[in-house]
């Protein structure tokens, strides 16, 4: 017998790990990836691959430069890369996509301290930076099932509002890689829910708010939730653990906030799409939502002095 190990309890741990959580997210994104390959062809897969690969490379380089231990094995960089790719049009040049992943991984994530420390969703900021830097390429929406030799572009369904519900649901429309098919995203979202990776609180609050708010504003609610990035944002971006509230109440507040801001931007803003801005704005509010929605410990006695301090 060697020396016995002495360590604090508990001595058993659940099998779930950070990398398993991230792997589940990658799996959940696969239906949407397949749909984008069907609609936009092989370049969709190539673009996603480039984004994931460059994201991992940036993360690795950061680890080397910042003398941190290797964090690429937690798979979070691959998820960020894939999510950013889902926010790009299929014609996006590869080098510009690589700039997007640079912004996401290096600036938004690693400079703030790496996994878990960033306050904004890396893929969302990556998308917004690309949107501002390469507006032309970022709004170059090709029509579905296009011929690579003669690319025809058109407006997104959010601008011309001509697509049918079924086209929007299945994905026979133009748009970013990942946001074309609501059905594929819902399948992925439900998978995450069944695997207990996410709860449905945020997505339901987000989608529900967009639906109701659209009707209140005289818009077509069903069209508004199916078109554009609402499904992608609600299931995969607004449920990012790191940048969203931690308690159930907080998650619902976050979802409702995202829904309202999305609609406000869509209906009255100068951009046709508001999902990414709404999530970014709510990311910024997250620490305050967290502070306001702390759980109440069972059996806690709040002393009068503390209660006063809370009110003040």
């Amino acid at each position: 017998m060697e020396k016995l190990t002495v360590s604090p309890s508990p001595h058993i741990r659940d099998g779930i790990t950070t990398s398993k959580v991230m792997t589940h997210v990658l799996i959940a994104l696969c239906p949407a990836l397949i749909m984008s390959a069907v609609v936009f062809g092989g370049r969709a897969l190539m673009l996603t691959g480039v984004c994931m690969l460059t994201a991992i490379i940036w993360e690795k380089l950061c680890n080397i430069v910042m003398k941190r231990s290797d964090t690429t094995r937690d798979i979070s960089a691959a998820v960020t890369g894939m999510l950013l790719a889902f926010n790009l049009p299929v014609t996006m040049p590869y080098w510009q996509a690589a700039i997007g992943t640079f912004v996401a991984i290096v600036i938004v994530k690693q400079l703030f301290g790496g996994l878990g420390q960033n306050f904004a969703n890396p893929a969302i900021v990556g998308r917004i930076v690309l949107m501002l830097a390469f507006t032309g390429n970022m709004t170059n929406w090709v029509v579905p099932f296009y011929d690579p030799d003669k690319i025809v572009t058109g407006a997104t369904p959010l601008v011309n509002k001509t697509a049918s519900y079924i086209d929007l649901f299945l994905g026979r429309t133009g748009g970013c890689l990942g946001e074309v098919s609501a059905a594929a995203l819902i399948i992925g979202g439900l998978y995450l829910c069944i695997m207990k990776i996410i709860s449905l609180d945020t997505p339901l609050a987000f989608i529900g708010t967009v639906f109701i708010f659209s009707y209140l504003c005289g818009e077509d609610g069903i069209y508004q939730i199916l078109a554009g990035g609402v499904m992608l944002g609600a299931f995969f971006m607004a449920t990012d653990y790191v940048t969203t509230p931690i308690t159930r109440t907080g998650k619902i507040i976050f979802g409702v906030g995202c829904g309202i801001i999305t609609c406000v931007i869509r209906f009255w803003g100068s951009y046709p799409e508001g999902v990414s801005f709404s999530i970014l704005l709510m990311n910024i509010l997250t620490p305050y939502i967290d502070m306001a929605t702390r759980t109440k410990p069972i059996g806690a006695v709040v002393k009068k002095k503390e209660a006063k301090a809370d009110e003040g």
């Binding site: 779930i16 964090t71 937690d74 301290g113 996994l115 878990g116 653990y241 931690i246 308690t247």
Partner: peptide
């Protein structure tokens, strides 16, 4: 199995 990462704020502990 025991590889520790940063907290990802998943809220499972809560």
């Amino acid at each position: 199995k025991c590889r520790q990462t940063n907290c990802i704020k998943c809220g499972r502990c809560i």
